[in-house]
Amino acid sequence: MKLDFEKPITKIEEKIEELKKMSEESGMDLSKEIEVFEQQSHEYKKELYENLKPSQKLQIARHPNRPNFIDYIHLITTDFVEMHGDREGTDDRAIIGGVAKIGDTPVMLVGTVKGKSTKENLVYNFGMPQPEGYRKALRLFEHANRFGLPIVTLIDTPGAYPGIKAEEHGQGIAIAVNLKEMAKLEVPVIAVITGEGCSGGALGLAVANKVLVLEHAYYTVISPEGCASILWRDASKAAEAAEALKITGPDLLKYNIIDGIVKEPLGGAHYDYEAMGDELKKEILKALNEYKNKTPQELKKDRYNKFRRMGVFNS
């Protein structure tokens, strides 16, 4: 599926295909011309993808073919063993986790899952966890803490689920408890926003020593649509809201919300799963290596200080 703003590329690519076909049919050597066109096409793409507006990045972050957590499990880990359930009656499928190896390092891997089809989304609830999902995640974090396993979370969620059961079971409290308990962990925690990082639903897995964001992912307090409908009283102003909320990597870096941006293949993660997986794995291993020699107390303090500094005010 091509996005609106990608249409010019499609045209150039069609031209190149035409030329190739012509060259084959007529026997003429057009390789020089094709090469020039391909070079131009590449540069055009680079220019396009490096200067995307926030609302366009949003479309890539939400692309239906974007790799999801299940893909990343295959792409970056080996020996994944899933651990199910919150031990209180539920196994929320919107959050999945377990032990696995990234490179040679055993880790606790937890992430939110978005489905790629309606059928899958019925299972994963569009990546919107219930309180039980956060409680399962916390159970796994505490397991990791007990056995000294570093924690890696991959986050791609439009937010925690807003529903009747969710409220009855304490959605807010479940997230809040995670924030508080993650502050106490004595193992390294690396969080990566891989697509949508929306609101408390994302933060509930992201009180980490290092927070990374994929190049076209976003991280925000409220979805641009939600923000537009509250502040502009008009959901169609989402593009303006996306701009105003400063939700993309470079802005987040500027305000010290995140610690780094993970480069995506040209056009976005969905164009090259393998390349995306390799890059992400490299960055996670780099981050894990940074914390390898820290003591449990140092890790906890490092995380506390990181969040303690956040905020901008006058005094």
């Binding site: 809040a176 992201a206 925000t220 969040f307």
Partner: peptide, 15 residues
């Protein structure tokens, strides 16, 4: 305050 306000949730919970 967008993500800065989101981070206040983490900051206060850490406290």
């Amino acid at each position: 305050e967008s993500a800065l306000s989101l981070m206040q949730m983490a900051k206060t919970s850490c406290a």
